[in-house]
Design a binder for these strands. Structure first.
Lengths: 204, 204
DNA sequence: GAATGGTTCAAACGATCGTTTGAGGATACG
DNA sequence: CGTATCCTCAAACGATCGTTTGAACCATTC
């Protein structure tokens, strides 16, 4: 049908990689279209502008991430026997999975960049596509941590998010060693994150 | 003496603010020099290039931050009665102070950007100016958390750093309210961070 | 007061940016 | 076959980028 679907997808994939490497301003459309093997004008034809392309790069991955997080949370929401670790797992593992399939761990780096860019339009876009998921998780955390005030809870979720973003985007000193498979490394990352975050959330 | 000291300082201050707002690539030398009230050519005259200017922006603040952190740590290093919270305080409070004086909470945002940019040269520069401080703190954490393996300790320090950077750069949802003074807010931030990080580091 | 060395200035340089244009190719339908 | 629709392409547009240039300024020194 739409013979341009391939072109659009190629642009999106190349854009995700280049934005992660060079940033939104640092990656030019000429580098981007050359990497994708398409004509320079194709970006403006299919996406209207570079800014709209940036939004679509986010949308493609965030739709995945949100759906998976909510699906994972659904199994635990409101249940008596749910633990803090269960909810953290539903929050963390889809993000780690996302950075694994989809062609590489690039998107979380793009996301971390977006946080750092402090672009108001982009933040609003992220809030619109992200807000309801965060609210659901916050409600579940509140249920499992009844001793925390609302302010204290917001603070701690914020700090968990910081630790998550940091770890997932590969900022840190921790790198996968060659004798550890990527799946194993991902599992270890998830376990470290969940253990750390759960303890931080439960802090007296 | 050096009548250009004023010009250099004005450039550095304006650069710090603009880099925080627009990023290293997004802030042009024309915006920068206009904000500083100096001639366009002054940047290349005093700093050689834009890249060198970026490095100097970091150096000016990191030298402060490193000195204050080490001075704060010195009071606790190796002492029997030192607590985890003491060391975390020595790590966290100088950073919060830095973002307070020096004309605004802009530098930590610049630092968070630098992490996100993944620029190898800049990361090497940061590592060279930062590494020995991190090693001293790591040694102290290891002393106070003898139950942790080296790998586990590295992981947790990495996660603490992520939470710290996130909170200090003002990413999160937490904003200072108008009825709270900045000093009070800074103190609350430090307490939340220390409580959360200490619990995360002590996780079973 | 002429000369010196450090600093500032307006102007221009070539390169690269995002975007637009208009012609041409490809495919489907009458 | 003719036409309409979607897409691709090379080329160019104006704007802005970091950097360089050479003249002017200004304090200090002989």
């Amino acid at each position: 049908m739409n013979s341009s679907a391939s072109t659009k997808e190629r642009i999106l994939t190349a854009a995700e990689a280049l934005f992660a490497q060079r940033g939104f301003e640092g990656a030019s459309l000429r580098q981007l279209t050359a990497a994708a093997g398409v004509n320079l004008a194709a970006v403006n034809y299919h996406f209207g502008s570079k800014d709209h392309l940036v939004e679509q790069v986010f949308k493609r991955r965030l739709d995945q991430l949100n759906a998976r997080r909510l699906a994972a949370l659904k199994h635990f929401a409101g249940l008596q026997e749910t633990t803090l670790e269960d909810v953290l797992s539903a929050f963390i593992r889809p993000a780690l999975d996302l950075s694994h399939d989809g062609g590489g761990g690039l998107f979380m780096r793009v996301l971390a960049r977006a946080f750092a860019e402090h672009d108001d339009d982009l933040r609003k876009f992220l809030s619109d596509n992200y807000g309801h998921v965060m609210r659901q998780f916050t409600a579940e955390f509140a249920r499992l941590l009844p001793g925390l005030s609302k302010e204290e809870l917001y603070w701690r979720i914020d700090l968990v998010t910081g630790a998550l973003t940091h770890a997932m985007s590969g900022f840190g000193i921790i790198q996968r060693k060659n004798d550890v498979s990527e799946i194993t490394h991902r599992e270890q990352t998830a376990e470290h994150l969940i253990r750390f975050a759960a303890a931080g959330l439960r802090a007296p």
